[in-house]
Structures are given as C-alpha cells and as structure tokens.
C-alpha cells in the first residue's frame, strides 16, 4: 500500500515537472509548479521529514504568489528561443548525463547511510529540546541559520535597490491587482486562524515539527492576504518601526551569540540551564523579522506611493 503510494508520488513528481516546463503559457507553468510543491510536501512526509514538509508547503505558497505576480509581467520580457539544434541537443545530452549519474549514485549509495542522528539526539537533553531539527538549526549549526537570515535580509535590500530613484522609501504597490469580495471575506476570516496556527507552530517547534520558518511564512502569507484584499495599505519601506522589526531578529540572534563569548566562553554557545530560554527568545525574534522580510520581499520595491 505504502509502496504504491511512494511509486505514484515518485512518478508524479517528474510528470508535473515536465508539465510545468512545457506548459504553453507562463501562468499554467506556474500553477503546475505550485502543484509540484504540494506533491513534494507529501514526499517529504513519506521521507520522515515533517519539518521540511511544513516548510515546503508554506514557502511553496509564497513562491507561487511571487511567480504568478511575475507571470503577467514576464510576457513582455520573453525572448525568442535561440541556439542551433546541435547546441540544444548537446544541452539535453548534458542534462541527461547528470541525471543518469545522479541516479547511478543514488542506487549505489550506502543504505543505511552514515548518519549524525545519534549524535544529534545525544545532546538534546543538554539543550532541553525535543525536536532534533530545531537543535541542528539553532545549536549545532546555528551559524548557518544566522547567516541564512542575513541572506534573506540581503535579498530584501537587493529587492529594495531595484526601486526607481526617489521612490524607494515609499510603499510598494499592493499585491494582486484588484481585490474582489470573496478575497475580502477570506482576508477577514483566515488571518485569525492563521495566526493561531503560526503561534502554535512556533511554540511546538522546540519539541515537535514546526518552528520559526514555518511560522514566519504563515504570518507573512496572512499579512499579504490582508494587503491583497485592500484591508490595509502596504507599509512605507522607510518607516522606522518596520525597519526596526526587520533588524531585530538578526540583531537578537547576534547579541545572544556574542553573549556566549562571556558566559560559556564560546560564540553561539548557550549558558547551561538557559539554552531553551535563549533559543525561544531567538526563535520569537526571528519569526517576527522573517515574517516581515518574507512578506516585503514578495511585495517588491517601493513605488513612491505615500499614505495620506
């Protein structure tokens, strides 16, 4: 039964990919891609990675909004396909070779694979955490996570730098063009539910699948929905409070990391007995910052609209 499910899922993934790549118009391609994202989330559950499944599903939705927004604009950018048949054949051959190589490697890879699962579990007690993925993200490889939020911030700064001259501190355009009544209804009904779920995800993240990325993405999605419905105006990007919110998450993370120099004596080490408290503070601050950054990235650069 499960083997059948795996087989069907594994087959559907490349099929959806093919559909998405070869769809006639951009919009269908994007919708195919979003469907692929949902299938991937299922695949992640089957692979025993519920944390990843949640992230995939949540981020997939935001990616969909982004791509759909660009799909309408992209038509005018389309360039005719170039290259000789020979070149195209070579490219196809190269891609096929890589795929075949990966398939051979997967088939020949050691099973059971070498694993850090035992090592990751061994220190959970000291960190007072129940979810090993959270332990990896916020203790063992916390530097990756810290720098990854910096990546998101850099992406946001990059997006902002694409504004027109003199407009960049103003509000971005509201997403989605025109709002209809059902969207307004949805934007009134869903956000309370979404926020509760987000807080729940964040809260259980220490011990069960969930955590800051998933929660932040959900909050960002709710905010975008409210903006789409026109219930609120997009914020001005130069606003001090908004900027403070964005910087707070990484700043708190860095501050706690640097405090580690003083107390246990190591960067990003948590003092004994305070590990869980420190991790929760970091997670809450990062959730707020990431939610704001993710939503602002989707909203795009300022257009100079000023709120009256």
């Amino acid at each position: 039964m499960n083997a059948t499910l795996d087989a069907v899922l594994a087959l559907m993934l490349p099929v959806m990919a093919l559909f998405s790549l070869n769809a006639r118009d951009e919009r269908s391609a994007v919708i195919g891609f979003m469907a692929l994202g949902l299938l991937l989330a299922l695949a992640w559950v089957r692979l025993g990675a519920v944390d990843v499944a949640l992230t995939e599903a949540a981020i997939g939705a935001l990616t969909g909004v982004l791509l759909l927004g660009a799909a309408s604009a992209a038509v005018s950018v389309a360039v005719p396909r170039t290259g000789s048949p020979l070149l195209r054949g070579l490219l196809a051959l190269a891609a096929a070779l890589v795929a075949a190589g990966v398939a051979v490697i997967v088939a020949g890879a050691p099973d059971p694979a070498p694993s850090l699962a035992a090592a990751a579990v061994a220190h959970l007690g000291a960190l007072e955490l129940g979810n090993p993925v959270t332990a990896v993200l916020l203790a063992y490889r916390a530097l990756d996570t810290l720098l990854e939020t910096v990546v998101v911030l850099l992406a946001l700064i990059g997006v902002w730098s694409l504004a027109g001259e003199g407009e960049w501190r103003g509000a971005p355009a509201a997403p989605g063009g025109t709002a209809s009544r059902p969207v307004v209804l949805l934007a009134r009904l869903l956000p309370p539910v979404g926020l509760v779920v987000a807080v729940h995800l964040l809260w259980v993240g220490a011990d069960a699948p969930g955590g800051k990325f998933q929660a932040a993405t959900l909050i960002a999605a709710m905010w975008l929905l409210v903006l789409m419905a026109g219930l609120r105006a997009p914020p001005e990007l130069g606003g001090a409070r908004l900027r403070g919110l964005i910087a707070a998450g990484p700043a708190v993370f860095i501050a706690i990391g640097l405090a580690g120099f003083l107390v246990p004596g190591q960067f990003l080490a948590y003092p004994e007995g305070w590990a869980k408290a420190a991790i929760i503070v970091i997670e809450v601050a990062l959730t707020a910052s990431l939610a704001a950054m993710l939503a602002l990235i989707v909203l795009g650069p300022g257009t100079g609209e000023r709120r009256t």
């Binding site: 720098l147 910096v150 911030l153 850099l154 130069g238 001090a240 900027r243 403070g244 910087a247 990484p250």
Partner: peptide, 14 residues
C-alpha cells in the same frame, strides 16, 4: 560578523 553588524545597522540608521 563585523560586516554583518555594519550592514544590519544601515536599515535602522534613522
């Protein structure tokens, strides 16, 4: 980290 901190201060320089 030092350049990151510098970068982080720029959005909130106001």
């Amino acid at each position: 980290l030092v350049p990151v901190i510098g970068m982080l201060a720029m959005p909130v320089m106001g």
